Simulated assay, not measured.
Amino acid sequence: MTKAERAAYVLQRLEQLYPHPPIPLDHTDAYSLLVAVLLSAQCTDARVNLVTPKLWALAKTPEQMAQVPVPEIEKIVKPCGLGPQKAKAIQKLSEILAEKFGGQVPADLELLEQLPGVGHKTAQVVMAQSFGVPSFPVDTHIHRLAQRWKLTEGKNVAQTERDLKRLFPTSSWNKLHLQIIYYGREHCSARGCDGTVCEICTTLFPERKRALKTRKA
């Protein structure tokens, strides 16, 4: 198969497996999604979903959260790891949203990336899922699978993002990044598949006999 043929198969198969992939982080609006994605760094979505209800019981809006002392936020988000940094970022970005954006999350990638604790991937998730702007956030699952399926050279997540955007139609990006994440978790995990086990890996590379080493993000 050529790279284009592999991409076409991946797109078709994932659409069959996950026609309506839900957003794995519980949220009610752009602000709650932004905070949830921030908390998910080096933490599982399941754990974030256990923590955020306690956080929203403390404060639901940027205006309210900006008034909460950082140590109080940290007590709640500590189970997500990196508690001090995440708590400080949540309080500060809430303050900025309240003061500069009327308590609203801006639908602008560059403005989002300027907020404390908000990196490129986090900003793209919000743009895709809250505002419907075509985006392709690349996490560790997507980075790993794109290498296993030889859709990218995979030197870093930025390159992987560029390569995938070239391969797949823009209209598929917002759904596809979720579909790949779900497939990676359920069938092609870091330990569960080495490039020679799961359905898509074996279909794309039936002659592959040796484990494929992937570059970390």
Rank of each mutant, 00 (worst) to 15 (best):
T196D: 04
R185D: 10
T140S: 14
C201M: 11
M127G: 12
P62H: 03
A4Q: 15
V125G: 09
K150W: 06
A30R: 03
S189G: 15
C188R: 11
M65V: 10
S40F: 02
H177G: 01
E95A: 09
C43F: 06
P134Q: 05
T52G: 11
V125D: 13
P19S: 12
A89S: 15
D163R: 05
R191T: 13
L50A: 13
G132S: 10
I181P: 09
A59F: 10
K150R: 15
F131K: 10
P137G: 02
K209Q: 13
L50I: 06
K86P: 06
T44R: 15
R215S: 14
K86F: 03
W149T: 05
M65E: 05
N49Y: 05
P116M: 09
V125L: 06
Q147N: 08
L112S: 06
R208C: 01
S94N: 04
R148V: 00
Q16V: 11
T2W: 07
P22W: 04
I200G: 02
Q179I: 01
L204V: 02
K121I: 00
Q64P: 12
Q16I: 08
H143K: 13
W173T: 05
A107R: 01
P19C: 12
L151N: 07
K100D: 13
A59L: 09
F101G: 00
M1F: 08
K155W: 05
Q159G: 09
S171R: 14
D26W: 03
S94V: 09
V197G: 00
V133N: 01
L178S: 00
Q179D: 02
P137F: 02
K150M: 06
K213P: 02
K121R: 00
D163Q: 10
A46H: 13
D194V: 10
A8R: 15
Y9N: 07
W149M: 08
S32W: 10
V51Y: 09
C80Y: 02
P24T: 09
H27I: 07
G192Y: 03
R144N: 13
R162I: 12
T202F: 00
I76W: 07
L109P: 00
Y31E: 11
H27W: 05
F168T: 04
I76N: 10
V157C: 08
C80W: 03
V125K: 00
Q129W: 13
K175P: 00
M1G: 13
F205G: 07
C80S: 14
L212Y: 14
P19N: 06
R185G: 08
H177D: 02
L145I: 11
D108H: 08
E15M: 09
Q12P: 03
S171P: 00
I180G: 14
T140C: 07
Q64C: 04
T2M: 07
M65F: 10
Q114K: 15
I73H: 11
Y18S: 09
A128E: 01
P22S: 11
R144G: 04
Q12D: 14
L58S: 08
I90S: 01
K60Y: 03
G117Q: 08
F168R: 04
L112E: 04
E74Q: 14
G192I: 00
F136M: 14
N174E: 08
P206L: 07
